[in-house]
């Protein structure tokens, strides 16, 4: 496998195992919600309700 492909793939696998492993240890919320990089990778932007107004 080329080095350029292997490294990102390895990182993704490592990330998945880290997240699930830590979550299973009972500190799941804190693990993800205190790690900026991890949270960024998991974050899905919300769908904006264009109809909502302001007060």
């Amino acid at each position: 496998m080329k080095k350029g492909v292997f490294l990102p793939a390895a990182l993704i696998v490592l990330l998945i195992f880290t997240v699930s492993g830590l979550a299973a240890s009972g500190k799941g919320c804190i693990t993800c919600h205190t790690d900026g990089e991890l949270l960024k990778s998991l974050y899905k932007p919300p769908v904006i309700d264009a109809g909502a107004g302001e007060g």
Binding site: A23, A24, S25, G28, C29, C32, L42
Partner: peptide, 18 residues
Amino acid sequence: GCASCHKGNDVAATREEA
């Protein structure tokens, strides 16, 4: 603890389950 207010599942293995 987060779950005392937010509920959810703080021992879940995935984001969706949590």
